[in-house]
Design a protein around this nucleic acid. Structure first.
Length: 220
DNA sequence: CACCAGGCAAGTA
DNA sequence: TACTTGCATGGT
């Protein structure tokens, strides 16, 4: 990886350690969680997943049969629950119809092509698609989120106008397709963003503080 | 009380 | 293309 990103990664890893995102979870649980966590604190998502797990609903077939209004009630703690129930249904329908309900079959598809097909499902945007591909499919695609963009722009590592794809490519061109690294790096960026790079940043205590440009963080 | 979370789609100009 | 808005619960 490039010297620069290596430095960033090492500082984050030394400061926070491994984040073990979605370590032992089943691919299905990762997929459901990826939708539920859209603009939502993970704590709330976790409650919704607990509901589904305890009710014995965490299988593709069961979720696919479950009426949308019932699914909505189980995932209520995750917020936007009617919207997310609908989005989950769209995704479950896609997996059932296009891959006969087999996640293994789905992840056989070439990365770029599968990514485009996921984006074709209403409710699945770039970050959700990439989260599914990386964390459930273990395919080498980098996940970008608001924190990632904020951290990079505040440090002047990317232009303020850089969009999702510009940032995604910045990482992919410099990290050599290393899935384990993509996984950990994204999680660490969310961690540092969550703790230090909010709208009102606390750069003085941030482990990346020594890497700020002269003149301090870039205003956004 | 205000603000925000591991986004996305649809509407407007 | 570039904003704006709806979606909703729960923590700080």
């Amino acid at each position: 990886m490039s010297a620069h990103l290596k430095d960033v990664f090492q500082r984050l890893y030394e400061a926070f350690g491994p984040q073990h995102w979605w370590p032992g979870e089943s691919p299905l649980e990762v997929i459901v969680g990826a939708v539920l966590t859209q603009n939502t604190a993970w704590k709330n998502v976790s409650r919704a997943l607990d509901n589904l797990r305890e009710a014995g609903l965490l299988s593709l077939e069961t979720l696919h049969q479950l009426p949308e209004e019932e699914l909505a009630e189980w995932i209520r703690p995750a917020g936007y629950y009617r919207l997310k129930a609908h989005r989950l249904k769209n995704l479950l329908n896609f997996i059932s119809e296009d891959f006969d309900g087999s996640l293994e079959a789905m992840f056989q598809v070439e990365l770029g092509a599968l990514r485009e097909r996921l984006l074709g499902v209403n409710g699945i945007g770039p970050e959700t698609a990439d989260s599914i591909l990386l964390y459930a499919g273990r395919l080498p695609t980098f996940v970008v989120d608001n924190y990632t963009a904020r951290v990079l722009k505040r440090h002047a590592w990317m232009e303020p106008k850089a969009d999702y794809y510009a940032i995604k490519e910045h990482f992919e061109e410099n990290l050599d397709g290393n899935v384990a690294l993509f996984n950990e790096f994204h999680a660490l960026l969310v961690r540092v963003g969550n703790q230090f790079c909010r709208k009102r940043p606390r750069c003085d205590e941030c482990p990346l503080q020594p890497l700020l440009p002269d003149g301090g963080p870039v205003e956004l």
